[in-house]
Design a protein around this nucleic acid. Structure first.
Length: 296
DNA sequence: AAGTATCGCAACCGCACGTCA
DNA sequence: ATGACGTGCGGTTGCGATACT
């Protein structure tokens, strides 16, 4: 037996909301609140609409704190970064952008930001990354042991979206101060809301010994200090800067080939993403067996 | 000016999850 | 433990607006 529909679709109004309906819903919610039951709300508010439709209209359009359009570059970066890390978890991404809704962010990504990302990826590919999107963040060989295999870091998912990310272990030339990639904390508990995990000591030591810095070093201080304010947005999102903080290169400002290493050990800490990414990657692009085991 | 293509966004759909009796 | 129910979420669709020919 299938599940009963939430409302009788034949008898409720569908399609665009009229200004009168908007006002009816707005004034009802302002006077009585949502009341914890969207299904019952339309009847109480005198609306011939499905409760789900009312909820969507309120959350995505009528809420007083909603912002529409006019995305800033910082918001672009936040969306991009979180999409890279966690994929199309629009509600989580939207929760980091005050006044934005999941629907709005999703639409924005699908209509604008994705194309922007693709164009930038293609540009990097032409500049020497291999000529396709997946090469945009291809990985340079590690500068110091351990000898980790190069790994392609972008795949096309089953839905056709291109996801960027991946494990990057070195850069050529060696990154300078100001090119901080990941900042490590040593004491904080995992941030489950971001699926961030503290970096194990072994990984921190490994990476620090190779090309990265830890927050306890002066290099890191220099590095972070020299980043533009909006380059360290994940520190803001992370709520204090003591968690694992993936830092993404100046993607929208034009990623240079030498900056490709600005991605991302963090993939190893996002198991779901890793499964999809490496599962879909070409065999010659996959990291060596046990890579993430080594790091995590 | 008219027709067509493309874009952008609001809204819908169906599934998954959490809660509660 | 189970099923009903409400809610939240992500994917998709439909349509008006705009750009292009």
């Amino acid at each position: 037996m299938g599940r009963a529909p939430c409302c009788d679709k034949a008898s409720v109004k569908r399609g665009p909301w009229s200004p009168e309906e908007d006002e009816q819903l707005r004034s009802y919610v302002q006077r009585h609140g949502i009341g914890g039951n969207w299904i019952a709300l339309p009847q109480k508010a005198g609306l011939n609409r499905c409760g789900k439709s009312c909820r969507l209209r309120w959350l995505n359009y009528l809420r007083p704190d909603i912002k529409h359009g006019g995305y800033t570059e910082q918001e672009d970066r936040i969306i991009w970064s979180l999409y890279s890390s966690i994929g199309s978890r629009w509600s989580i991404i939207a929760s980091k952008l005050p006044g934005r809704t999941d629907n709005d962010v999703k639409n924005y990504w699908n209509t604008k930001l994705k194309k922007k990302a693709m164009a930038a990826a293609a540009a990097v590919g032409r500049a020497g990354g291999g000529g396709n999107a997946s090469a945009a963040f291809a990985v340079a060989a590690p500068a110091t042991p351990p000898a980790l295999s190069p790994a392609s870091s972008s795949v096309t998912s089953s839905s056709g979206d291109v996801r960027f990310g991946g494990a990057v272990y070195a850069t050529d030339p060696q990154p300078q101060a100001g090119q901080g990639l990941i900042r490590f904390g040593t004491t904080s508990a995992p941030r489950t809301d971001h699926q961030l995990a503290p970096v194990p000591a072994a990984a921190a030591q490994l990476v620090d010994g190779a090309v990265w810095r830890t927050s306890s070093t002066s290099d890191a201080a220099i590095s972070v200090a020299q980043l533009a304010d909006d380059d360290v947005f994940l520190a803001e999102l992370g709520g204090g800067g003591e968690q694992l903080l993936p830092y993404y290169g100046d993607f929208f400002g034009g990623l240079q080939p030498q900056d490709r290493a600005a991605l991302e050990l963090s993939a190893c800490y996002f198991p779901n993403m890793m499964t999809e990414m490496w599962g879909a990657a070409a065999s010659d692009a996959k990291p060596q067996q046990g890579l993430c085991d080594t790091l995590t």
